[in-house]
Simulated assay, not measured.
Amino acid sequence: MKVAAAIATAPKAPFELVELELDEPRPGEVQVRLTACGVCHTDAIVRDQWYPTPLPAVLGHEGAGVVESVGAGVTDLAPGDKVVLSFNSCGACRPCLSGHPAYCENFYAHNFAGRRPDGGTAFTQDGGEPVSSHFFGQSAFAAVSNVARRSVVKVDDDAPLELLGPLGCGIQTGAGAVLNVLDPEAGSNIVVFGAGAVGLSAVMAAVVAHATTIVAVDVVPSRLELARELGATHTVDGRAADQVEQIRRITGGGAQYALDTTGVAPVFRTMTDCMGIRGRAALVGASALGTESTIDIGTQLLSGQTISMVIEGDSNPQLFIPRLIHLYRAGLFPFDKLVRTYPLADINQALEDSENGDTLKPVVLF
Protein backbone atom coordinates (compact mmCIF):
# COMPACT_ATOMS: atom_id res chain seq x y z
CA MET A 1 0.00 0.00 0.00
CA LYS A 2 1.00 3.64 -0.37
CA VAL A 3 1.55 5.43 2.95
CA ALA A 4 2.48 8.96 3.97
CA ALA A 5 5.74 9.20 5.87
CA ALA A 6 8.41 11.61 7.08
CA ILE A 7 11.90 10.46 6.10
CA ALA A 8 15.37 11.48 7.22
CA THR A 9 17.59 11.91 4.18
CA ALA A 10 20.85 13.50 5.40
CA PRO A 11 22.46 14.84 8.59
CA LYS A 12 20.93 18.14 9.74
CA ALA A 13 18.53 18.15 6.77
CA PRO A 14 14.81 18.65 7.38
CA PHE A 15 12.61 15.56 7.34
CA GLU A 16 10.87 15.18 4.00
CA LEU A 17 7.18 14.31 3.69
CA VAL A 18 6.80 11.64 1.03
CA GLU A 19 4.62 8.76 -0.07
CA LEU A 20 6.22 5.32 0.24
CA GLU A 21 5.25 1.79 -0.69
CA LEU A 22 4.72 -0.45 2.36
CA ASP A 23 4.88 -4.22 1.92
CA GLU A 24 2.82 -6.86 3.72
CA PRO A 25 3.63 -7.79 7.32
CA ARG A 26 6.05 -10.71 7.52
CA PRO A 27 5.87 -13.57 10.03
CA GLY A 28 6.18 -12.17 13.53
CA GLU A 29 5.12 -8.66 12.49
CA VAL A 30 2.08 -6.51 13.19
CA GLN A 31 0.79 -3.91 10.76
CA VAL A 32 -0.21 -0.82 12.74
CA ARG A 33 -2.06 2.29 11.59
CA LEU A 34 -0.46 5.08 13.58
CA THR A 35 -2.54 7.56 15.56
CA ALA A 36 0.44 9.47 16.94
CA CYS A 37 4.17 9.29 17.49
CA GLY A 38 6.38 11.08 19.98
CA VAL A 39 9.40 12.99 18.72
CA CYS A 40 12.54 12.09 20.65
CA HIS A 41 16.12 13.39 20.81
CA THR A 42 17.21 10.00 19.48
CA ASP A 43 15.36 10.67 16.21
CA ALA A 44 17.44 13.81 15.74
CA ILE A 45 20.80 12.25 16.57
CA VAL A 46 20.17 9.25 14.31
CA ARG A 47 19.19 11.60 11.48
CA ASP A 48 22.50 13.34 12.18
CA GLN A 49 24.29 9.96 12.08
CA TRP A 50 25.58 9.77 15.64
CA TYR A 51 24.55 6.16 15.16
CA PRO A 52 24.91 4.70 11.64
CA THR A 53 21.33 3.82 10.66
CA PRO A 54 21.36 3.90 6.83
CA LEU A 55 19.64 6.91 5.28
CA PRO A 56 17.09 7.56 3.88
CA ALA A 57 15.11 6.18 6.79
CA VAL A 58 11.69 6.26 8.36
CA LEU A 59 12.54 6.99 12.00
CA GLY A 60 10.07 7.48 14.86
CA HIS A 61 10.10 5.14 17.84
CA GLU A 62 7.32 6.32 20.18
CA GLY A 63 4.33 5.19 18.17
CA ALA A 64 0.75 4.47 19.21
CA GLY A 65 -2.03 3.24 16.98
CA VAL A 66 -4.43 0.48 15.99
CA VAL A 67 -3.64 -2.95 14.60
CA GLU A 68 -4.59 -3.32 10.93
CA SER A 69 -3.45 -6.91 10.39
CA VAL A 70 -0.97 -9.45 11.73
CA GLY A 71 1.65 -11.63 10.11
CA ALA A 72 1.97 -15.37 10.44
CA GLY A 73 2.67 -16.60 13.94
CA VAL A 74 1.13 -13.61 15.74
CA THR A 75 -1.79 -15.08 17.68
CA ASP A 76 -2.21 -12.70 20.62
CA LEU A 77 -3.15 -9.55 18.68
CA ALA A 78 -6.00 -8.86 16.28
CA PRO A 79 -7.19 -6.07 13.99
CA GLY A 80 -8.72 -3.25 16.03
CA ASP A 81 -6.47 -3.71 19.06
CA LYS A 82 -5.02 -0.48 20.44
CA VAL A 83 -1.26 -0.60 20.92
CA VAL A 84 1.73 1.40 22.10
CA LEU A 85 5.08 0.74 20.41
CA SER A 86 8.45 0.45 22.12
CA PHE A 87 11.96 -0.88 21.44
CA ASN A 88 12.67 -4.26 19.89
CA SER A 89 14.75 -7.18 21.18
CA CYS A 90 15.59 -10.72 20.13
CA GLY A 91 13.91 -12.48 23.05
CA ALA A 92 16.47 -15.30 22.97
CA CYS A 93 19.77 -13.99 24.40
CA ARG A 94 20.76 -14.11 28.07
CA PRO A 95 19.69 -10.50 28.92
CA CYS A 96 16.32 -10.97 27.20
CA LEU A 97 15.68 -14.29 28.90
CA SER A 98 16.63 -12.84 32.30
CA GLY A 99 14.07 -10.04 31.99
CA HIS A 100 16.33 -7.24 30.72
CA PRO A 101 15.47 -6.86 27.01
CA ALA A 102 16.87 -3.31 26.91
CA TYR A 103 20.31 -4.92 27.09
CA CYS A 104 19.59 -7.39 24.31
CA GLU A 105 22.86 -8.69 22.86
CA ASN A 106 21.41 -7.93 19.43
CA PHE A 107 20.04 -4.48 20.31
CA TYR A 108 21.72 -2.66 17.42
CA ALA A 109 20.51 -5.13 14.79
CA HIS A 110 16.93 -5.00 16.04
CA ASN A 111 16.70 -1.24 16.60
CA PHE A 112 19.21 0.69 14.47
CA ALA A 113 20.15 -1.45 11.47
CA GLY A 114 17.22 -0.21 9.36
CA ARG A 115 16.61 -3.67 7.97
CA ARG A 116 14.80 -6.89 8.72
CA PRO A 117 17.00 -9.86 9.66
CA ASP A 118 16.92 -10.96 5.99
CA GLY A 119 18.35 -7.59 4.91
CA GLY A 120 15.14 -6.25 3.37
CA THR A 121 13.11 -3.18 4.28
CA ALA A 122 9.37 -2.63 4.64
CA PHE A 123 9.43 0.68 2.75
CA THR A 124 10.46 1.51 -0.80
CA GLN A 125 10.38 4.69 -2.84
CA ASP A 126 9.09 5.02 -6.38
CA GLY A 127 11.46 3.01 -8.51
CA GLY A 128 11.98 0.41 -5.79
CA GLU A 129 14.80 2.12 -3.90
CA PRO A 130 14.82 0.87 -0.29
CA VAL A 131 14.14 3.17 2.65
CA SER A 132 15.32 2.03 6.07
CA SER A 133 12.52 0.61 8.22
CA HIS A 134 12.12 -1.17 11.58
CA PHE A 135 13.77 1.65 13.53
CA PHE A 136 13.31 0.41 17.10
CA GLY A 137 11.29 -2.33 15.44
CA GLN A 138 8.63 0.18 14.39
CA SER A 139 9.57 3.22 12.19
CA ALA A 140 6.54 5.13 13.40
CA PHE A 141 6.93 8.35 11.39
CA ALA A 142 4.66 6.68 8.83
CA ALA A 143 0.88 6.53 8.67
CA VAL A 144 1.07 2.72 8.60
CA SER A 145 4.07 0.56 9.50
CA ASN A 146 4.99 -3.11 9.86
CA VAL A 147 6.20 -3.55 13.43
CA ALA A 148 8.08 -6.34 15.17
CA ARG A 149 5.79 -8.17 17.59
CA ARG A 150 8.17 -7.61 20.52
CA SER A 151 7.82 -3.85 19.99
CA VAL A 152 4.03 -3.96 20.38
CA VAL A 153 2.26 -3.49 23.73
CA LYS A 154 -1.50 -3.95 23.79
CA VAL A 155 -3.42 -1.35 25.82
CA ASP A 156 -7.03 -0.90 26.88
CA ASP A 157 -9.70 -0.13 24.30
CA ASP A 158 -10.29 3.32 25.82
CA ALA A 159 -6.61 4.25 25.98
CA PRO A 160 -5.83 7.82 24.76
CA LEU A 161 -3.51 6.91 21.89
CA GLU A 162 -2.77 10.53 20.99
CA LEU A 163 -1.00 10.81 24.35
CA LEU A 164 0.59 7.42 25.06
CA GLY A 165 3.33 7.09 22.41
CA PRO A 166 6.10 8.71 24.50
CA LEU A 167 5.71 5.96 27.08
CA GLY A 168 7.52 3.76 24.56
CA CYS A 169 10.88 5.50 25.00
CA GLY A 170 11.46 8.91 26.59
CA ILE A 171 8.97 8.73 29.43
CA GLN A 172 9.80 5.07 30.04
CA THR A 173 13.51 5.90 30.15
CA GLY A 174 13.26 8.51 32.90
CA ALA A 175 10.65 6.74 34.97
CA GLY A 176 12.27 3.34 34.58
CA ALA A 177 15.71 4.59 35.57
CA VAL A 178 14.19 5.65 38.89
CA LEU A 179 11.70 2.85 39.54
CA ASN A 180 13.57 -0.09 38.00
CA VAL A 181 17.23 0.77 38.52
CA LEU A 182 17.83 3.31 41.28
CA ASP A 183 14.77 2.17 43.24
CA PRO A 184 14.94 4.87 45.95
CA GLU A 185 13.34 3.93 49.23
CA ALA A 186 10.58 6.03 50.79
CA GLY A 187 12.01 9.04 52.60
CA SER A 188 15.23 9.17 50.56
CA ASN A 189 16.72 11.98 48.48
CA ILE A 190 17.35 12.03 44.73
CA VAL A 191 18.89 14.55 42.33
CA VAL A 192 17.87 14.68 38.66
CA PHE A 193 20.15 16.48 36.21
CA GLY A 194 18.21 17.80 33.24
CA ALA A 195 14.53 18.79 33.40
CA GLY A 196 13.48 17.84 29.90
CA ALA A 197 10.89 15.15 29.22
CA VAL A 198 13.15 12.35 30.48
CA GLY A 199 14.24 14.22 33.60
CA LEU A 200 10.74 15.36 34.51
CA SER A 201 9.52 11.78 34.07
CA ALA A 202 12.20 10.83 36.57
CA VAL A 203 10.96 13.53 38.96
CA MET A 204 7.40 12.17 38.74
CA ALA A 205 8.69 8.64 39.30
CA ALA A 206 10.58 9.82 42.39
CA VAL A 207 7.28 11.13 43.73
CA VAL A 208 5.70 7.73 43.04
CA ALA A 209 8.59 6.12 44.97
CA HIS A 210 7.92 8.47 47.94
CA ALA A 211 11.33 10.12 47.88
CA THR A 212 10.98 13.16 50.13
CA THR A 213 13.83 15.33 48.87
CA ILE A 214 13.73 15.63 45.07
CA VAL A 215 16.20 18.05 43.49
CA ALA A 216 15.93 19.09 39.83
CA VAL A 217 18.92 20.70 38.12
CA ASP A 218 18.59 22.59 34.82
CA VAL A 219 19.60 25.83 33.14
CA VAL A 220 16.08 26.82 31.98
CA PRO A 221 13.99 28.56 34.67
CA SER A 222 10.63 27.51 33.16
CA ARG A 223 11.65 23.86 33.30
CA LEU A 224 12.64 24.22 36.94
CA GLU A 225 9.23 25.78 37.61
CA LEU A 226 7.48 22.82 36.03
CA ALA A 227 9.72 20.44 37.98
CA ARG A 228 8.41 21.98 41.20
CA GLU A 229 4.84 21.67 39.93
CA LEU A 230 5.46 17.97 39.24
CA GLY A 231 6.95 17.24 42.66
CA ALA A 232 10.51 18.52 42.95
CA THR A 233 11.09 19.89 46.43
CA HIS A 234 14.18 21.88 45.41
CA THR A 235 15.69 23.26 42.20
CA VAL A 236 19.25 24.25 41.35
CA ASP A 237 20.51 26.37 38.47
CA GLY A 238 22.85 24.15 36.46
CA ARG A 239 24.98 27.20 35.60
CA ALA A 240 25.78 27.96 39.24
CA ALA A 241 29.44 27.56 40.16
CA ASP A 242 28.47 26.19 43.58
CA GLN A 243 25.85 23.67 42.47
CA VAL A 244 27.70 20.73 44.07
CA GLU A 245 27.81 22.58 47.38
CA GLN A 246 24.11 23.48 47.04
CA ILE A 247 23.17 19.86 46.41
CA ARG A 248 25.26 18.60 49.29
CA ARG A 249 23.61 21.15 51.58
CA ILE A 250 20.07 20.30 50.41
CA THR A 251 20.64 16.54 50.74
CA GLY A 252 22.43 16.72 54.05
CA GLY A 253 25.85 15.56 52.90
CA GLY A 254 25.38 14.27 49.36
CA ALA A 255 22.88 12.59 47.07
CA GLN A 256 21.70 9.12 47.94
CA TYR A 257 20.42 8.72 44.37
CA ALA A 258 21.16 10.75 41.23
CA LEU A 259 20.33 10.61 37.54
CA ASP A 260 22.00 12.33 34.57
CA THR A 261 19.53 12.66 31.71
CA THR A 262 21.71 15.06 29.67
CA GLY A 263 24.60 12.96 28.39
CA VAL A 264 26.77 16.07 28.75
CA ALA A 265 30.24 15.17 30.05
CA PRO A 266 30.63 18.04 32.59
CA VAL A 267 27.14 17.29 33.98
CA PHE A 268 28.10 13.65 34.48
CA ARG A 269 31.16 14.80 36.43
CA THR A 270 29.01 17.12 38.55
CA MET A 271 26.69 14.21 39.31
CA THR A 272 29.53 12.03 40.57
CA ASP A 273 30.94 14.91 42.65
CA CYS A 274 27.64 15.50 44.45
CA MET A 275 27.10 11.89 45.54
CA GLY A 276 26.98 10.89 49.18
CA ILE A 277 28.52 7.83 50.80
CA ARG A 278 27.34 4.65 49.03
CA GLY A 279 25.22 6.76 46.71
CA ARG A 280 23.71 5.26 43.57
CA ALA A 281 23.81 7.12 40.26
CA ALA A 282 22.67 6.38 36.72
CA LEU A 283 23.26 7.82 33.26
CA VAL A 284 20.52 7.74 30.61
CA GLY A 285 21.46 10.72 28.41
CA ALA A 286 22.72 9.79 24.95
CA SER A 287 26.11 11.11 23.83
CA ALA A 288 28.00 10.83 20.57
CA LEU A 289 30.08 7.66 20.34
CA GLY A 290 33.50 8.33 21.84
CA THR A 291 32.31 10.94 24.35
CA GLU A 292 34.36 10.78 27.53
CA SER A 293 33.93 12.23 31.02
CA THR A 294 36.09 12.16 34.13
CA ILE A 295 35.66 10.89 37.67
CA ASP A 296 37.86 11.88 40.60
CA ILE A 297 38.77 8.27 41.39
CA GLY A 298 41.10 9.32 44.19
CA THR A 299 38.23 10.90 46.11
CA GLN A 300 35.37 8.71 44.94
CA LEU A 301 37.17 5.49 45.88
CA LEU A 302 36.22 6.33 49.44
CA SER A 303 32.55 6.90 48.61
CA GLY A 304 31.42 3.40 47.71
CA GLN A 305 29.17 4.91 45.04
CA THR A 306 27.65 2.85 42.22
CA ILE A 307 27.10 4.18 38.70
CA SER A 308 24.84 2.41 36.22
CA MET A 309 24.54 2.97 32.47
CA VAL A 310 20.84 2.62 31.69
CA ILE A 311 18.99 2.02 28.42
CA GLU A 312 15.19 2.39 28.14
CA GLY A 313 14.85 2.46 31.91
CA ASP A 314 15.90 -1.21 32.04
CA SER A 315 12.22 -1.95 31.52
CA ASN A 316 10.19 -4.78 30.08
CA PRO A 317 7.76 -2.70 28.00
CA GLN A 318 5.03 -5.35 28.16
CA LEU A 319 4.91 -4.84 31.94
CA PHE A 320 6.18 -1.32 32.51
CA ILE A 321 4.10 0.63 29.98
CA PRO A 322 0.78 -0.67 31.41
CA ARG A 323 2.11 0.20 34.88
CA LEU A 324 2.77 3.79 33.80
CA ILE A 325 -0.70 4.01 32.25
CA HIS A 326 -2.27 2.83 35.53
CA LEU A 327 -0.25 5.44 37.45
CA TYR A 328 -1.34 8.14 35.01
CA ARG A 329 -5.00 7.20 35.31
CA ALA A 330 -4.70 7.22 39.10
CA GLY A 331 -3.42 10.82 38.94
CA LEU A 332 0.03 9.81 40.17
CA PHE A 333 2.03 10.29 36.98
CA PRO A 334 0.74 13.36 35.05
CA PHE A 335 3.07 13.07 32.07
CA ASP A 336 0.43 14.69 29.86
CA LYS A 337 1.71 18.04 31.18
CA LEU A 338 4.85 17.51 29.09
CA VAL A 339 3.08 16.87 25.77
CA ARG A 340 2.34 19.25 22.91
CA THR A 341 0.86 17.91 19.68
CA TYR A 342 1.65 18.78 16.06
CA PRO A 343 0.31 17.57 12.71
CA LEU A 344 2.76 15.31 10.87
CA ALA A 345 3.26 18.12 8.33
CA ASP A 346 4.88 20.16 11.12
CA ILE A 347 7.38 17.49 12.21
CA ASN A 348 10.37 19.76 11.53
CA GLN A 349 8.82 22.47 13.70
CA ALA A 350 8.31 19.85 16.42
CA LEU A 351 11.98 18.89 16.24
CA GLU A 352 13.05 22.54 16.32
CA ASP A 353 10.80 23.30 19.30
CA SER A 354 12.21 20.30 21.14
CA GLU A 355 15.78 21.33 20.35
CA ASN A 356 15.36 24.91 21.59
CA GLY A 357 13.33 23.89 24.65
CA ASP A 358 10.01 25.42 23.66
CA THR A 359 8.34 21.99 23.82
CA LEU A 360 9.25 19.25 26.28
CA LYS A 361 7.66 16.30 24.47
CA PRO A 362 6.36 16.88 20.95
CA VAL A 363 3.90 14.34 19.57
CA VAL A 364 2.95 14.28 15.88
CA LEU A 365 -0.60 13.26 15.02
CA PHE A 366 -1.68 11.35 11.92
Score class of each variant (00 low, 15 high):
Pro334Tyr: 12
Gln349Ala: 15
Gly263Lys: 05
Asp260Gln: 11
Thr261Met: 10
Tyr328His: 12
Ser287Glu: 01
Phe320Ile: 05
Ser293Gln: 04
Gly298Trp: 12
Val264Tyr: 15
Asp336Lys: 08
Thr294Pro: 02
Thr261Leu: 07
Ala282His: 02
Pro343Met: 03
Ser293Pro: 01
Gly252Ser: 07
Arg280Thr: 14
Gly254Pro: 09
Ser293Glu: 04
Ala281Lys: 07
Ile295Ala: 06
Glu312Trp: 09
Phe333Trp: 12
Leu301Glu: 05
Asp346Met: 08
His326Leu: 10
Ile250Gly: 00
Val264Glu: 09
Ile295Leu: 13
Leu327Gln: 02
Ala281Gln: 13
Gly252Asp: 13
Leu301Gln: 13
Thr294Lys: 10
Leu338Ser: 01
Ala345Arg: 14
Ala282Cys: 15
Ile250Phe: 08
Tyr342Ala: 10
Ile250Thr: 02
Arg249Val: 04
Gly279Arg: 04
Leu289Gln: 10
Met309Arg: 00
Ile321Asn: 06
Leu289Lys: 03
Tyr257Phe: 12
His326Met: 08
Ile307Asp: 03
Thr251Ala: 02
Ile277Lys: 07
Ile295Gly: 07
Thr270Phe: 03
Asp273Pro: 04
Thr262Glu: 07
Tyr257Val: 00
Gly252Pro: 02
Asp260Ser: 06
Ile347Glu: 08
Arg249Leu: 03
Val339Met: 13
Ala265His: 00
Gly331Trp: 04
Ala288Tyr: 11
Thr262Trp: 02
Leu289Ser: 08
Ala265Arg: 10
Val264Leu: 15
Gln300Lys: 11
Arg269Met: 11
Leu344Trp: 15
Met309Gln: 04
Thr299Gln: 12
Asn348Ser: 00
Arg280Asn: 12
Tyr328Asp: 01
Glu292Asn: 12
Ala350Gly: 10
Asp273Arg: 03
Ile277Gln: 04
Leu327Cys: 04
Leu283Gln: 05
Thr270Asp: 12
Gln246Met: 06
Tyr328Glu: 05
Gln318Ala: 13
Arg323Met: 09
Asp260Val: 08
Pro322Ile: 14
Ala258Val: 09
Gln305Asn: 12
Arg340Phe: 03
Leu324Met: 15
Gly304Pro: 10
Pro317Arg: 05
Gly304Tyr: 11
Ile321Trp: 00
Gln318Lys: 14
Asn348Asp: 09
Val339Pro: 03
Leu301Pro: 06
Asp314Asn: 01
Ala281Val: 10
Leu302Gln: 07
Ser293Asn: 07
Ile325Trp: 08
Lys337Gln: 15
Val310Glu: 05
Gln349Phe: 13
Gly298Ala: 12
Asn348Cys: 10
Gly254Thr: 14
Thr306Gln: 12
Arg248Met: 09
Gly285Asp: 01
Thr291Arg: 05
Arg278Ser: 12
Tyr342Ser: 12
Gly331Pro: 10
Gly285Phe: 07
Ala286Ile: 14
Phe335Ala: 05
Leu344Ala: 15
Gly331Arg: 10
Arg269Tyr: 13
Leu324His: 10
Arg248Cys: 02
Ala286His: 05
Phe333Ser: 02
Ile347Gly: 00
Glu312Gly: 01
Met275Cys: 13
Ser293Arg: 07
Val310Phe: 06
Leu302His: 11
